[in-house]
Design a protein around this nucleic acid. Structure first.
Lengths: 261, 261
DNA sequence: AATGATGTTCCATTATTTGGAACATAGTTG
DNA sequence: CAACTATGTTCCAAATAATGGAACATCATT
């Protein structure tokens, strides 16, 4: 329910996107009334904005008068998804790693100090593109994030972490740029980053960095598992496999990752 | 390359979406220059629109100065995809039907007189979510479309077809509401609709309707195949399987399809 | 150094968005 | 059933944001 109230001065567009965001993020069906509560605009105004979004096919109204993201997004989704060269190249390697480990595999890239998840391979999941995909997490408390950072020069890491509000999610969360930096050396030496229950209690992971030669795309992949079922030793046993998967992906990457490489 | 120039009078929003659409649809990387060619707005104006989209995270600019859909878009797209209850319920059944037939399976819903494709299961396709997904076709010349129509009362069918511009894609394309209606009876009787090379020469399909009890969501699924490889007799042999898949999906559908059923 | 192509900024004019209030439509309760 | 309340929809003068043309900047090429 925590809404990020940043004032992009993108005028009309920003407000339209805020509506979409509110509907996308909500776990419960949003009717018009619910929107008026969380959007803070006069009813008349909001109504027209929603109408426009409906007309453009970006929103849809359901039988129960709740809104959901429109079919127009499906089209865009299909395009964005299938034309993301990075994701596409990585996919078979993610699947292979999943076969090997039986655990959840994540692929993510760094945007500033955030990790954006591009793909996920999960066990019992017939459906691809799970909720996590497209979402973001801070880089300082995730395996993929720290792995990605390790591919950047220290100065760049400091720059990216300087404006970050460190949130102590668990007792092991790193809470300062210095703490992150000191781990980065180990990651560079070993080629693997760990998330030791730093984001969610009971969940840990092992990751490895994936990046283009020119560092225009920097990210990583990870094997994530619940601690109760998978001990650290088992994660460590997968270290080389994770690195190899990352290496295999990088060998297929073009130097410059264009939009549809 | 054919762009649909419909003038939704959604003001600013419509123009922004037009830019997104141009970038999403293009098969080649779009730089700023390319946008000015296909958008028909003064450079200054277009530049600001793009800037706003960039700031909102809906667009991204690549190292080679080309644009692609931004991570914010991935988020929305992923939500729209995974929260589409209809698609989600249908997916395993589509896969099963694909296993059985070895041919391409489509899932689509009717919006007015258009079929919007929600999902597709294809053979050699490691990647799901192909280009076709999210696109639309006329209902009068597709199996899914005619199947969907058959679930509606005749009056509704006539209403939906009344404003349609019938386009004779092939020699077998139905080109009038009457022609469609007269086929509808057969479809209702048999439970299957055929596309007999009515949209594309050399391609035919067999479909069955899928719909909610209250007809708030009406669509269908189909097995599509090239004529040279799959004769009509083979399609007919799958008739019961297609109907059964449709039936199985409908049994899982809630009466009212909420946004995240 | 000059040229042309592409990308960016600026600002008076123009057109769109805004917000409040009035209207409409359920749904609820005394 | 009538009065009431919550919700959804429409309207229009006032406020605001988008427009477009031209000037400026940047870059590659000759």
């Amino acid at each position: 329910m925590a809404s990020t109230k940043i004032d992009h001065d993108t005028g009309t567009l920003g407000k339209a996107v805020a509506v979409l965001e509110a509907i996308a993020v909500s776990d419960t069906p949003m009717r018009f009334r619910d929107l008026t509560n969380c959007i803070d605009q006069p009813r008349g105004t909001l109504h027209r904005q929603v109408s426009n979004l409906l007309e453009e096919g970006l929103l849809e109204i359901n039988a129960d008068q709740s809104y959901s993201l429109g079919f127009r997004f499906l089209k865009f989704a299909a395009r964005a998804w299938s034309s993301n060269g990075f994701r596409e190249i990585a996919e078979p390697h993610l699947k292979a790693l999943h076969e090997l480990t039986g655990e959840t595999i994540h692929l993510g890239i760094l945007k500033g100090a955030e990790v954006i998840y591009l793909d996920k391979v999960e066990s019992r999941q017939a459906v691809r593109m799970h909720s996590q995909v497209g979402n973001s997490s801070p880089c300082y408390c995730t395996g993929v994030g720290k792995a990605g950072l390790s591919a950047l020069p220290n100065a760049e890491i400091i720059a990216r972490l300087s404006d970050v509000n460190f949130n102590q999610f668990t007792s092991t969360t790193l809470t300062s740029p210095q703490a992150v930096l000191s781990e980065i050396d180990e990651i560079r030496a070993s080629g693997n980053a760990y998330d030791r229950e730093e984001h969610e209690p009971g969940i840990h992971c092992i990751a490895a960095p994936v990046f283009t030669e020119d560092r225009s795309v920097v990210g990583g992949l990870s094997v994530t598992a619940p601690c109760y079922r998978v001990p650290v030793e088992k994660l460590e046993a997968w270290a080389a496999d994770v690195r190899n998967a990352a290496k295999a992906i990088m060998e297929e990457l073009p130097i410059k990752m264009g939009p549809r490489a």
